[in-house]
Design a protein around this nucleic acid. Structure first.
Lengths: 217, 217
DNA sequence: ACCTGAACACCGTTCAAGT
DNA sequence: ACCTGAACACCGTTCAAGT
C-alpha cells in the first residue's frame, strides 16, 4: 500500500533494545551510554537517534520490554495474604533489575505491563473493606517501601563488590557509648543484622497496620 | 610548634564545602561538578583535589556538614509515638535535601551526626519490648520506607517543574477497564490521590504492625 | 605546600552533509 | 529514509610543571 521510499534501515528499535539489555546485564546501567550502545549495535552514535528520540526514550523502551516479562504469581484467597504475595512478587521482579527503580524514580516512567501489581494490591485492599482512596494510600506506602528496599539492596551490593574500606564499620567501631548506647551495644553485629532480608516482614507490618483486623491476618 | 612550610593556602575545605552547598541550593546536586565548584570557589578544578581526595569524599563532607544541623525534636513518652516523631523528624530533615538520600543510597556514606535517629528509634523499640534484633529490623523497614518516599517525592517535584507531557496521565486515560478495573475506575483521580502526603500514615502502620499491641497505640 | 595548564578518556546531542 | 563525521559543550581525574 504505502510507498516505502528511501534507504532501507540497517538497524531496528528491537536491535537497539536487545543490545542495550546485553550491556546492562554485563556492565550495569552506568555502562549504558549512547556511544557504547552504538558500538554494540555496530553503528555510529548518531544512527541511534534516528530510532529513539533521546536516552530517556530508550530507557522507557527498555522498561516496557522488561516489564512485559514480569511474572504474575498465583494469588491466595485471603486479601491480606494476596497483597503480601503481590508485593513480594513485585519486589522479586525488580530485584534482578535494580536500575529500573532508579529509572522509575528518576522520572515519570511507568510501564503498562507493570500495572498488574498496583491493580492487584488495590483490588485486594478494597475487597478487604478499605475505600478506594485508602487502598491507593496502602499501595503507595508499599511502593515507597519497596523502592527504598531495592535501592538499598543495590547499593549494598555495589559496596560489597567495590571492596571499599567500609567506612560504616569504622564508624560503628568508634561510637560514643554515652550518646548512642543502643548502636554502640550493637557494634560489630550491625553488618550482620542489616544483611538480613526483612522485606516481607515489612510488607506484613504495613498490611497489618492498615487493613481492618479481620482481613489482615 | 610545627614548622609550617611552603606556600600559604588560598582556599580551605570549609570554603569548598560552603561553595558546594550554595551550588546545590541553586542548581541541585546534578549541578555540582568539580569544574563548576572550582569556578564558584575561584580556582582551577585541580586545586580542589588538593583539599579533597575525590568527588565522593566531597559528598561525604557535605553530608556530615548538613547532618550536624539536623533538628532533634522533643520526644513524647509513649514508645510507639516516640518512633513516629523521630521518623517524621528524620524525613522532615531529609525532605529539603533529597540529594542526600541519593548519596546515602549510592554508597556507604553515613554520618555520625545523623545516627541520633536510628538510636532513638531502636531505643524506643527495645523499651517497647522488642529484642535488639527485631528493633533493628523495625528501624531498617522505616528507613527503607523513608528513603523511598523521599526519592519519589523528589522525582515528582522534578516532574512537575520539568513540565513534561505527563506520560502517566496519558497512560491512565487509556487503561483497559476489563484488565485493570480498579485503576481504570480511579482514572483521573490518580494524580490527585498520589499528591497526598501519606508518610506518617505509613510509619504508624509499620509501628503498629511490629510493636507489641500495648506499646504501639 | 599549594596551585596551574595541558591532556586523557569519556559523556549526550546538534547540525550539515552524504547515499 | 536512513546513516555518517565533525563538532559543541560538557564530565572526573592524572600528570608534570610552576611558585
Amino acid at each position: 500500500m504505502s510507498a516505502r521510499t528511501g534507504r532501507p534501515p540497517k538497524i531496528s528499535r528491537a536491535d537497539i533494545v536487545s543490545a542495550a539489555h546485553r550491556i546492562i546485564d554485563e556492565e550495569g546501567v552506568s555502562g549504558l551510554t549512547m556511544r557504547r550502545l552504538a558500538r554494540e549495535v555496530g553503528t555510529t552514535p548518531m544512527a541511534l537517534y534516528h530510532h529513539v528520540q533521546d536516552k530517556d526514550e530508550l530507557l522507557q523502551l527498555l522498561l516496557d520490554d522488561y516489564a512485559s516479562g514480569m511474572p504474575r504469581p498465583e494469588l491466595p484467597d485471603g486479601e491480606g495474604e494476596r497483597i503480601v504475595v503481590a508485593a513480594v512478587a513485585m519486589r522479586q521482579a525488580l530485584i534482578g533489575v535494580p536500575w529500573t527503580v532508579e529509572v522509575l524514580r528518576a522520572d515519570d516512567l511507568v510501564s503498562v505491563h507493570a500495572l498488574w501489581y498496583p491493580e492487584t494490591i488495590i483490588d485486594a485492599a478494597v475487597r478487604a473493606g478499605l475505600t478506594p482512596e485508602t487502598a491507593v494510600d496502602l499501595y503507595r506506602i508499599i511502593w515507597h517501601y519497596t523502592a527504598g528496599e531495592i535501592s538499598a539492596r543495590a547499593a549494598a551490593g555495589r559496596r560489597r563488590e567495590g571492596g571499599k574500606p567500609t567506612y560504616r564499620s569504622r564508624l560503628f567501631a568508634n561510637l560514643d557509648a554515652a550518646e548512642l548506647p543502643r548502636l554502640a551495644a550493637l557494634g560489630e553485629r550491625w553488618e550482620e543484622l542489616t544483611a538480613r532480608d526483612t522485606y516481607e516482614k515489612g510488607v506484613r507490618a504495613i498490611v497489618q497496620g492498615l487493613l481492618p483486623m479481620s482481613a489482615s491476618s
